[in-house]
Design a protein around this nucleic acid. Structure first.
Length: 567
RNA sequence: GCCUUUGUAGUUCAAUGGAUAGAACAGAGCUCUUCUAAGGCUUUGAUGUAGGUUCGAUUCCUACCAAAGGCACCA
């Protein structure tokens, strides 16, 4: 529709002998200013030195003569806006379209035939799954799905640090703490928690105890060259347990990865590449191998790739990783999602890669998100532990469980509902804001589940669902009310929102849209008795409800949120 | 010091250079003998500061102030 209007405007300009101009067509904030509006007259008026309002009248008259039945009214308003009002026919057709397309409604083919690899989550074995991982996972999963809706084949990748000082610290901590209680019966989640605590203790020792520091450095070397049988055993066990615990979380979160990359595998690959590019790209400095990125871009800085002892650093592993990705899958676009802390160094790494492979430069995209901070400085979870991503998730699910404890659901149903709603609450609070800034997470607010929240979206979909369950014989509609509802005026915009979200790689546009969609449905729901056999429009209302539910489901899917059976 | 990101109601967030800056929460007041009140309706309240570009700036530019992150062997 937007394109139809743009074409109408271009044709009108041509007829009036006005040259090419950059105008925009957008949705006015307020429905009373029409469904679409354009600033074309104001832009042209500047170039032609004419009164914008008079010009707007001229252009709109020209457009009006060529308009089609989908547009009912064209009006000049304000400083020279031309507002388009769509016809009743357009809206009822769009409801039909939503119903016909079903799960495909909102898709576009801007990336058809392309392959996009998205890397996200990146937790480290032996360390807890913290809040940053939760953010990266929610964002990366949503980006993956938005890309998929744009027609691309999505390849999901995870990158995990299975070697390095943090592993040695955890192993040292495990030596000190002794084996976990009930090792044979405890769940992987509990065992992973034990390992996480050992890591944090080992880390404390490392910072405060000289002797421990030496021992940990020693363990680190032994982990690398696998020279100590005892350490190998602990390492293999710990790696397996934490990875399994992560996998449990991915299942709850709704992520299924196609690739798991490990730092231990990427290090040698990266090291080989770095060494092969001395001195073309990398140089020696104080015994270390560094890259002087500021030579190519004054805003970048020098970073060390190999230490003076010849040990590959994160930068080198990243080079190995990127190269491997392109070798294995050769994606058209490679997207990496990480926290903002990685932003600067990633630019340096990409600059180095661009020197070696100029053709890859435009295909690498790095999305950074802010950090999640907890409101009111509460750093311990409801059970008194340090707040991790996992504890946040489980607390959120517990709150839902508490809320539905009096419902007549079976225990199995309650568990499912609490997972779905708990995850929705958390994901929505991450995905509702744009990626740049830090997120202040207020646990109490996010679990109130009112207003601007994931459960609000689920709840309104639930209401639609329960109506539809009772409306089996409403299959088609003949009578259509003359008055167009706000719900219809929002419904048809979904595909535009998806496209916009992809263009900016910003999932929050979807979240914002769904909230206004849900809000207009809830108003409609309150003001209209949908199932009323006396009302000749009832069939249309049911169709509208169906279209709403279908759109909401597609939108929630894009956010990585599921719909529970009941709530 | 240099670089990056971010400053919008009391709070948490929106707003491809456009119209009266939208929501939600909190505050004040309504609303279930009707399809799920985790809902709906009414109401109070905001663009860090100072300049500049523009018919028009929350948005672009400059300076300043404030917050977060990065800047040589952590990831």
């Amino acid at each position: 529709m937007k394109q139809i209007i743009e074409n109408l405007i271009r044709q009108a300009l041509k007829n009036l002998d006005i040259g090419e101009v950059n105008f925009i067509v957008e949705h006015p904030e307020d429905f009373k200013n029409g469904d679409y509006s354009t600033n074309v007259a104001m832009v042209c008026a500047k170039q032609l030195k004419m009164n914008p309002k008079a010009l707007a009248e001229k252009i709109s008259a020209e457009i009006f003569s060529a308009k089609e039945s989908q547009i009912s009214k064209i009006e000049v308003a304000g400083a020279g806006f031309i507002n388009f009002y769509l016809s009743r026919e357009f809206f009822s057709n769009s409801v039909k379209e939503v119903l016909e397309k079903g799960a495909d409604y909102g898709k576009n083919n801007s990336l058809t035939g392309k392959k996009v690899m998205v890397e996200y989550t990146q937790p480290n074995p032996f360390k807890p799954f913290h809040i940053g991982h939760l953010m990266s996972n929610s964002i990366g999963e949503s980006i993956s799905r938005i890309v998929e809706f744009s027609g691309a084949k999505t390849v999901r990748a995870n990158y995990q640090g299975d070697v390095g000082p943090h592993v040695a610290k955890a192993i040292y901590g495990m030596y000190k703490a002794g084996p976990p209680a009930n090792e044979s019966t405890a769940s992987v989640s509990v065992l992973a928690q034990y390992i996480g605590q050992c890591y944090s203790q080992g880390s404390n020792f490392y910072d405060t105890d000289e002797q421990a520091k030496k021992e940990i450095d020693e363990i680190n070397k032994k982990v690398y060259n696998r020279s100590d049988e005892k350490i190998n055993q602990i390492y293999d066990w710990g790696r397996k347990v934490t990875l399994e615990a992560f996998e449990e979380l991915y299942k709850i979160l709704g992520t299924k990865f196609d690739y798991y990359f490990f730092e231990s595998e990427m290090a040698p690959i990266g090291e080989k590449i770095v060494r092969a590019n001395i001195p073309k790209v990398f140089e020696e400095s104080d015994g270390a191998i560094v890259f002087h990125a500021e030579k190519y871009n004054p805003k970048l800085h020098t970073r060390v790739f190999l230490t003076s002892h010849g040990i590959p650093l994160y930068e080198t592993k990243e080079i190995g990783l990127t190269t491997t990705k392109f070798e294995k899958e050769n994606p058209d676009i490679s997207i990496v999602t990480t926290a903002i802390e990685q932003g600067e160094y990633m630019k340096v790494v990409q600059q180095a890669i661009a020197l070696m492979h100029p053709e890859l430069e435009s295909r690498m995209k790095h999305i950074t998100h802010g950090m999640m901070r907890l409101a009111s400085g509460k750093m311990s979870s409801r059970k008194g532990n340090v707040v991790t991503g996992e504890s946040l998730l489980r607390d959120s699910m517990d709150v839902v469980l508490e809320k539905i404890k009096d419902r007549e659901f079976t225990d199995e149903e309650k568990k499912k509902v609490s997972e779905s709603v708990g995850v929705a609450a958390l994901k929505y609070s991450i995905l509702r804001s744009s990626l740049g800034s830090d997120i202040i997470y207020d646990f109490e607010k996010s679990i109130s589940f009112e207003g601007d929240s994931g459960p609000y979206l689920q709840y309104s979909a639930m209401r639609a669902k329960s109506i539809l369950a009772k409306a089996l014989n409403h299959t088609s509609f003949n009578e259509i009310p003359e008055q167009v509802s706000d719900l219809e005026k929002i419904l048809y915009r979904f595909p535009e929102v998806v496209a916009h979200s992809y263009a900016e790689l910003e999932p929050h546009h979807i979240a914002t849209y769904l909230t206004s969609l849900a809000s207009s449905f809830n108003s409609f729901y309150t003001n209209t008795q949908i199932l009323n056999t006396e009302d000749k429009y009832s069939h249309y209302y049911v169709a509208l409800t169906k279209a709403f539910l279908s759109t909401m489901q597609n939108g929630l899917w894009l956010l990585g949120i599921t719909l529970p059976e009941r709530m």
